[in-house]
Amino acid sequence: MSIFSSKNVKLLSGPLNLQNPVTVQILGICSALAVTVKLKNAIVMGLSVIVVTAISNLVISMLRNYIPSRIRIIVQLVIVATMVILVDQVLKAFVYDVSKQLSVYVGLIITNCIIMGRLEAFAMGNKPWPSFLDGLGNGAGYAMILIIIAFFRELFGSGTLMGFQIMPKAFYEAGYVNNGMMIMPAMALILVGCIIWFQRSYNKELIEKE
């Protein structure tokens, strides 16, 4: 099997659309609401989750024949927690302002259902390379949704993107105001709902048969 066989590519692209962890499997919603006020935070959070899912999937898959099944959940948790703490420490050291805004949500990546779900469902039963791709794909699927939500929330909530003013001054002079609802977590949920709606009307196969 070549490194990028069609099966492997599917592992990467599936989670971006038909198998998206957030909008199809409805996992990881909590942090998607919390860290999407600003685009920069969403990007850093997305990258952190990609790193954690990819590497913990890889490690668990490499160890899968040596992990005693009776303590496998504990082993998975230890690996995930290690990765998360490492990511958190690195963020604190190099992107301090973002890490302050992400606050507890980096630590809470440990409890992100996407990660444990992929470890248990995929990495425990597949070879390292496909597992790594699966982790990468699922992390990217999550990051993508976060970035879409954050884009709209920051643009309409604060009039900026990545901290730069986007909405022209003239708009404000003409009576335009930033939408305060956009910076409340509830609005993220409504946006997730909208994304699910668009995705389903575009991909008919996602709609349940009556």
Partner: peptide
């Protein structure tokens, strides 16, 4: 199982404390 968990915990602890020590000055 006991040996596996012990080795795992020690390795993880080593890894994390090394990382924490090296990143502390930056933090």
């Amino acid at each position: 199982i006991f040996i596996f968990s012990a080795v795992m915990v020690v390795l993880v602890a080593l890894l994390l404390s090394t990382a924490a020590m090296n990143l502390k000055p930056y933090q």
